[in-house]
Amino acid sequence: MHYVKAKSILSQKNGMNLYRGCSHGCIYCDSRSEIYNMDHDFEDIEVKENSIELLKRELLKRPKAMIGTGSMTDPYIPAERHLRYVRRSLELIDRYGFGFTCITKSDLLLRDLDLLKKINEKAKAVVQMTLTTADDDLCRILEPNVCPTSRRIEVLKELDDAGIPTVVWLCPILPYINDDFDNIRAILDHCVEVNVKGIFCFNMGLTLRDGNRQHFYRKLDEHFPGLKERYIEEFGDSYAVGSPNNDELMRYFKKRTSDEGIINDSYEILCYLREFPQKSRQSKLI
């Protein structure tokens, strides 16, 4: 872990990354790709030490909106337990009357349930949770340093009980690993049980770029001997690596979610995540 001084913390679309790099160890992580120009080891997490001061300054200048995090780095990495940058950010977001959404795989998020509830009462808080496999043993291979799927389902249930809306990212679905009907059905069963509002699923497959591809192939050699050669033969250097079961699984996904009243249109979900509710009232600035 190392510390840097950032020049700003919010993007034009109100996204923020308090950390850069991750220690969850997901074998497929696109954020390892060379295109992102990370100049340090991925597990050597970069901490933006002045992010809280920057966030306070930028929130004071911006119109009320949804603040998002987690698109590049899961905000609830283990180091967040003691650094508490996410929690301190949530305190500011609550104080100044903004909304909040994040993408995570971690049950550490429940530590901040009190703040999420306060934000949701005044504006909107939405938690986005990634689910890739219903099999906890496989999950511990694909995503080794974060809580397994069964625990994430428990988190989604607690959020639903607390009135916090949730969205699931059903991705990536890895060819010949978790791209089977039983897995997709089981994940959707869980989503129905915990009342998720929407599910992102662009297609059944994953993306591979330089940096990410090499790491993924090393992990295939470690955990799925012989599968790397099959990927190379079938997909070459393709960016989009699609499951041969894509058409069948996507038909099932769309029908099941439609039947259950779960939003499955990615654009509609994105609009919902970005929409700042008119019910929000401006909090007193302190």
Score class of each variant (00 low, 15 high):
Leu10Lys: 05
His24Asp: 09
His24Gly: 05
Cys26Trp: 12
Cys29Glu: 10
Cys29Gly: 08
Cys29Trp: 13
Ile35Glu: 11
Tyr36Thr: 00
Met38Leu: 15
Asp39Ala: 14
Ser51Asn: 11
Leu54Asn: 07
Leu59Ser: 01
Leu60Met: 12
Lys61Ser: 13
Ile67Thr: 03
Thr69Pro: 14
Met72Asp: 09
Thr73Arg: 04
Thr73Pro: 12
Asp74Met: 05
Asp74Gln: 08
Arg84Glu: 11
Arg87Val: 01
Leu90Ala: 02
Asp94Phe: 01
Cys102Lys: 09
Lys105Leu: 07
Lys117Tyr: 06
Gln128Leu: 02
Leu131Glu: 10
Ala134Leu: 02
Asp136Leu: 09
Cys147Ala: 09
Val155Gln: 03
Val155Met: 05
Ile164Tyr: 00
Cys171Pro: 00
Pro175Gln: 02
Pro175Leu: 02
Asn178Gly: 07
Asp180Lys: 06
Asp180Cys: 11
Arg185Asp: 15
Val194Ile: 05
Val196Ala: 10
Lys197Val: 10
Phe200Pro: 11
Phe202Tyr: 11
Phe202Pro: 00
Met204Trp: 00
Thr207His: 12
Leu208Glu: 07
Asp210His: 15
Gln214Ala: 06
His215Phe: 15
Tyr217Leu: 06
Arg218Asn: 13
Lys219Pro: 06
Arg230Ser: 05
Ile232Leu: 15
Glu234Trp: 01
Val241Asn: 08
Ser243Asp: 13
Pro244Gly: 06
Phe253Asn: 06
Asp259Asn: 12
Asp259Ser: 14
Ile263Cys: 14
Asp265Ile: 09
Glu268Pro: 00
Leu270Asp: 14
Tyr272Lys: 02
Arg274Asn: 15
Arg274Pro: 03
Phe276Tyr: 15
Gln278Glu: 15
Lys279Cys: 01
Ser283Lys: 09
Leu285Lys: 09
